[in-house]
Design a protein around this nucleic acid. Structure first.
Length: 271
DNA sequence: CGTATTTGACCCGCGC
DNA sequence: GCGCGGGTCAAATACG
């Protein structure tokens, strides 16, 4: 009996130590998360100062900071067509991209150079809006959607609340937001490194941050964006960060109570 | 019934 | 002029 009590006490001590380590790691993770957020804010401010935002800006939905209230990040659009790469489920054939605008599909074509069909969308938020986009799966990676934007919006994007795209098949996208980013512990976006030529064999020197189902950007005029890449790259290379993150994610999968601890330490809202 | 999506037909520019 | 390929139209269809 005494042996059993002793074993339980040892186990208790071990769990306490593990818990302590976990808290420490989460604290580190939380601090790094805050630092990264402030750096991103600085970059956004810097971009506004350098380029200047006006009606030609593009609004991109960012779920990385708060899964319940996605914020809209503005990226300037160029006069020339803008290409955007979005990572999605490779089995998902919907060619839907949430980018803060409401689109109406008006055509679909199979092109010669790509077996995947290309979908044509027109902005339906304003009757006179000349903005259009083409969406097609990447020829080399079916999990990547390539969206090409033509024309400029003559109105604002959807702000404050995310309204699902009209091209969304029966509201599936709206549900997708919470499913992807609140229930999973995955990182909100996949960072594809610059030398990853398999996705963009014809592109160079561009930021390639791909959210699952959400939009990030890739454009030829990318002043200021290289800084984002530098930060992301340095974070990836930081063994302390990656180890702590991997550990924390692994632990949260194993237990509900630990997941709640995670949320508290990271300042995430409780479900 | 109104609105969005689908899809075959059509248009147009380009190269030969 | 002809064929090809990308882009758009519009009738049919689906769905709430």
């Amino acid at each position: 009996m005494d042996e059993k009590v002793e074993a339980l006490q040892v186990e208790l001590e071990r769990v306490k130590e593990e818990n302590s380590d976990l808290r420490l790691m989460l604290e580190v993770l939380s601090n790094k998360h805050k630092n990264l957020q402030s750096q991103i804010r600085d970059i956004n401010k810097e971009s506004e100062q350098i380029i200047g935002f006006n009606n030609n800006s593009m609004h991109i939905v960012d779920y990385s900071t708060n899964c319940k209230r996605p914020r809209l990040v503005e990226f300037p659009t160029a006069k020339k067509p803008l290409q955007i790469f979005v990572r999605t489920n490779p089995n998902d054939d919907t060619l839907i991209i949430r980018d803060g605008y409401q689109w109406r599909k008006y055509g679909q074509k199979v092109t010669k150079d790509n077996a995947s069909p290309r979908a044509y969308f027109r902005c339906s938020m304003a009757p006179s809006c000349p903005a259009k986009k083409k969406v097609q799966k990447c020829i080399d990676d079916k999990s990547i959607l390539v969206a090409t934007y033509d024309g400029e919006h003559n109105h604002a994007a959807i702000h404050d609340s995310l309204i699902p795209s009209s091209s969304t098949p029966k509201g599936s996208v709206a549900n997708n937001i919470n499913n992807n980013y609140c229930k999973n512990n995955d990182l909100p976006f996949t960072i594809l490194e610059n030398d990853d030529k398999k996705y963009w064999p014809h592109q160079r020197d561009s930021v390639r941050l791909c959210c699952d189902g959400d939009v990030t950007m890739q454009k030829s005029d990318h002043r200021g964006n290289t800084k984002i890449e530098e930060y992301a790259s340095s974070l990836i290379k930081d063994p302390e960060f990656t180890a702590a993150l991997a550990e924390a994610v692994a632990r949260t999968i194993t237990g509900q109570s630990k997941e709640q601890d995670l949320n508290l330490n990271l300042g995430l809202p409780e479900e």
